[in-house]
Nucleic acid binder design. Structure first.
Lengths: 139, 139
DNA sequence: TTATAATTTGCAACGCTGTTGCATAATAAA
DNA sequence: TTTATTATGCAACAGCGTTGCAAATTATAA
């Protein structure tokens, strides 16, 4: 994992700083979409909240993370595909559990193609499904 | 239209007030997803911004409008189907034009079914497609 | 039409999210 | 180790959305 963190930063030509390392590690550890607030709760004692905002912005621009649509605030998740600033490539489904509140990428579920009206051009697609995840549904 | 406004309010057992009437009319006139800011620009001289927030909240609870997910802020659009507080029924596609910024409901485009992993339960579905609308694409 | 009860409004205030400017600190390269 | 570049922390700010409360408005019933 240490490995992943440092190579990810190098690959995107970013200086390695402890904040960037920690934010990346947090995404890896938690394996769920995180809001700025989530990261601030975890790392707020070590870093200023502005620094965390800027780290997220940088990661977003470099294609390390992507935004996950949400009805109550912005969340971010790691890009598993290769992405760059202008070429995000996320056609997977996002699922938000209304019980435990977790939002996750369902990487292997692709968003089905939709036939838009004549003349429309697609640039990005975002599908959020809300409901109960397997754990919460059986509880 | 006047007709629609007053019957809509009565149908949902809401008192008719000028703010509610004007907000509803604005949705009808503009026929696009609107943010609180949009409504405040249009109606801000006549009503306090808090009142507009509360009107949106009330309409949302009563099933008169629904949230439209967006990567840069909350927007709302009229419910065309019959909805109630706990039974929203929106499986249509939302399209946001990255050029003109408008977000619209494509009422006749349904979100295709997605097979979730075992045990997951679906409650709500939100598909946002971003790109260029027909008008902006040909320009 | 008027009096009454219930609901809505405007205002002030607050917390949260996200951004910017600037001086200081840390990084990478020579 | 020195230097140029980039990142950080701090202070300040703007915008979004909410709450409490007194005053105004609505619907109801007399």
């Amino acid at each position: 994992m240490e490995q992943f963190v440092s190579t990810t930063l190098k690959d995107h030509k970013l200086r390695t700083t402890s904040c960037r390392e920690d934010v990346l590690e947090t995404f890896l550890n938690r394996d769920t979409a995180l809001s700025h607030g989530d990261l601030d709760s975890t790392l707020g004692e070590r870093f200023d909240r502005v620094t965390i905002y800027r780290t997220l912005k940088t990661f977003l621009e470099k294609g390390i993370i992507h935004k996950v649509l949400d009805d109550e605030g912005t969340r971010y998740a790691l890009c598993r595909e290769r992405c760059t600033e202008h070429d995000h490539n996320h056609d997977h489904v996002h699922f938000k559990c209304n019980a435990c509140g977790q939002t996750n990428c369902l990487e292997n579920l692709h968003v089905p193609a939709v036939k838009l009206p004549e003349g429309y051009r697609v640039q990005e697609v975002n599908l959020l499904i809300q409901g109960l995840c397997a754990d919460c549904a059986k509880a």
